[in-house]
Design a protein around this nucleic acid. Structure first.
Lengths: 195, 195
DNA sequence: AGCGTAAGAGAACGGTGATTCTCACGCAAG
DNA sequence: CTTGCGTGAGAATCACCGTTCTCTTACGCT
């Protein structure tokens, strides 16, 4: 089998296992079994478990944000796009096996001992923040709002995971809606509609 | 040395190490060394590492909420008490060694494989939610607001930890202040927002 | 067909960690 | 004093895990 396809299968297996059970709870042998690759191939493609963990996080970051953006872009209006973030969150929370933010979980588990993991988590949050800032800006709202939305998103993910309560997404959305109204009232004509 | 004092020293050592580096990254031998107790004593007081982890989480929950409540109660007015939550958060974030929420971290690391850990984390969030609900109620605000505050608090903790940015507390406080104003305006008698 | 290379299966290695066991010792009761 | 229990220090045990090595097989190329 070609290397690229095996790399995909390995990363698929790693993602399912790492996300579902935690980084340290999953051994290389289990990833080998789940991916169908041999240990030798595994180590050829990823020279160590650390490399595999980082690759898992990097790929998940890209896919997670692409999925979010995909849903958001179904909405035409700027404010609806912002609210769509929370609807996407809600559908994610309701997926079986939802277990919170892979990056926050990984940060909590290994952030203190692994620079790459800590950096990957930070990059992910940073990228999310930038994305929210863009949505907020395109909707003609103040940049300040973006940080509030980030807090709501992160808070909803954490709360939904720990309390196993997908309604956190709905509540976050309603809170965001109020903030949006408030922001419209206070800075009515701050930015032109679209860039 | 009496058992109670040793138990305290063990839990102190466990808390520092578990919180600072993660549950699985810390071995019993290290806790033995840091606490000064013997391995035999350690296992007498906590029959397994799982027991010690749970005891660590339970004690930390009580202390964490007591510390929060202590700061909050310095404020006389209902709304100031709510805002004091975020000021307390800010001073926590600025402490050296701050590494996010012990419960969220533990949940991410072992929540999938350890019921006691998952339950301890959930209980902690639940207790925090109840506390916020009480503050909100005592300030004469709608119960709805409490859940929004919970999202802001959790979001601020996560963001501050991952992005190493203690300003998340300030932003969460300002967001909370706006929500408070909005809630005053919508629920009943109140002054206009202060702009 | 014959040779060289790469691959897979799985054993082996080196290290670590949770938990238990050994042993020598202090001390209290007889 | 002696006996026996509880203790601390640390070795021993048992299992697991990341990583590497071995051996055998399969295949490409000439």
């Amino acid at each position: 089998m070609e290397a690229a396809a095996q790399e995909t299968r390995i990363l698929d297996a790693a993602e399912t296992l790492f996300y579902g059970r935690g980084l340290q709870a999953v051994g290389m042998a289990e990833i080998r079994d789940a991916s169908g690759a041999s240990l030798k191939r595994l180590y050829q493609l990823f020279p160590s478990k650390d490399h595999l963990v980082e690759a898992y996080l990097r790929r998940r970051d890209v896919r997670w944000r692409a999925s979010l953006a995909g849903h958001v872009e179904d909405q035409p209006s700027g404010e609806d796009r912002i609210l769509a973030v929370f609807e996407w969150l809600g559908s994610w929370f309701r997926e079986p096996g939802f277990r919170g933010c892979a990056f926050v979980n990984s940060f909590g588990e290994l952030g203190a001992t692994s620079e790459p993991v800590a950096i990957a988590a930070r990059d992910h949050v940073e990228a999310l923040k930038d994305y929210l800032a863009r949505l907020v800006s395109e909707a003609g709202h103040s940049a300040w709002l973006a940080q509030s939305l980030l807090l709501l998103v992160e808070g909803a993910i954490t709360t939904a995971a720990v309390s196993d309560d997908s309604a956190a997404a709905d509540h976050a959305r309603e809170t965001a809606r109020k903030l949006l109204e408030l922001d419209s009232a206070s800075s009515s004509s701050s930015a032109p509609g679209r860039g």
